[in-house]
Amino acid sequence: MSSSDLLQFLFAGLTSGTIYALVALGFCVVHNTMGIVNFVQVDFVSLGGLLMFSALFTFNLPMGAALVVAVAATALVAVIVERIGLRPARSNDPLILIFLTIGLSIILRGIMALIWGKNRMALPGLGADEPLQIGGAALMPQTLWILGLTLVAILILAWFFRCTGLGLAMRAVSSNPTAAAVVGLHIGRVRAASFALAGALGGLAGILVTPITTLSYDVGILLGLKGFAAAILGGFGSFPGAIIGGLLLGLLESLTAGYFSSAYKDVVAFVVLLLVLFVRPQGLLAK
């Protein structure tokens, strides 16, 4: 294949890898605060796209306002999920809480199917539809929006955890929940904030990716599982690992589909997941 083909595969890999990184970051935020795998994260991806669809076509909001409203609404739903679904649990056993998130994921998916139906929908891209030609390869403007907004989200995330009181509190709870409670930190509020942040990241991923895929109540399942695989690859709980793992996974998928067969594209994430668990369970950048 020509160099332009390789460049095209790299563009596609960066696009999908960036989305996986966003989802992986959401997994890491909740894991670092509560010590669990939050499987509702996969549905935050679907919910973000669906709320964006309603904001655009039901409430007729402009694109920028619709994006902000959809991300904020997904974060609010995430807080409700934590407050109603997890906080009343009588056990702090991580395994029980993980099973609760699986049940909450099924419930949330059913609610989305009732509200928006099961038909496939489409979201318009954030930019123009005319592709840019770079080195003989086509680069969609939506890819630039994905890369740009993800970079902004990562920078805001870094600033949040380093420079804000709530971010520092979340880091304290992540390091030692018992000591954080002793010094007066409200653990429940910190955990709710972690869910809000994870919901915002998942919702943003759904908003960015569905214009180039499809939109439905269950679109986030496969994307979310690949984001989970990316988090494992990078080192579960590591923010830099989530970003690197997502990008690597996206590139591996794209190159496999381009040079071998697209039939193997969705298998790559789970093969990588198994290999990492067998060879280096702590991931590339273990904490």
Rank of each mutant, 00 (worst) to 15 (best):
I207M: 06
R162T: 15
A181I: 00
G224S: 09
W159M: 14
Q142A: 02
T143F: 01
G117I: 04
G148H: 09
I156A: 10
V209S: 01
L166S: 02
I107K: 10
G220C: 10
L168C: 12
T213M: 10
A229P: 00
L123M: 13
A192K: 13
N176L: 07
L108Q: 08
L151T: 01
R109D: 10
L157W: 04
L204E: 13
V182D: 09
M121P: 08
V183Y: 07
R171S: 08
N176Q: 03
G184R: 09
L126F: 15
V182K: 11
I221K: 03
L166Q: 01
R120T: 13
G220S: 07
L123P: 11
R189T: 00
L114I: 13
S194M: 09
T213I: 15
L185K: 05
S174M: 02
T214C: 11
R162W: 15
L155N: 05
G202P: 14
P240K: 06
V173H: 01
A128Q: 10
A192S: 15
S238G: 02
V209W: 07
I232D: 02
L223K: 08
L223W: 13
F160T: 06
V219P: 03
V209Y: 05
A231D: 01
L139R: 00
H186E: 02
P124W: 05
G202A: 07
A113K: 05
V190Q: 00
A122L: 15
L208T: 08
M121Y: 14
R171P: 06
G127C: 08
P124C: 09
L151K: 01
S216L: 13
A172D: 00
F228M: 03
V152H: 07
P240Y: 02
I111A: 11
I187W: 03
D218H: 07
L215F: 14
L139M: 01
I146E: 07
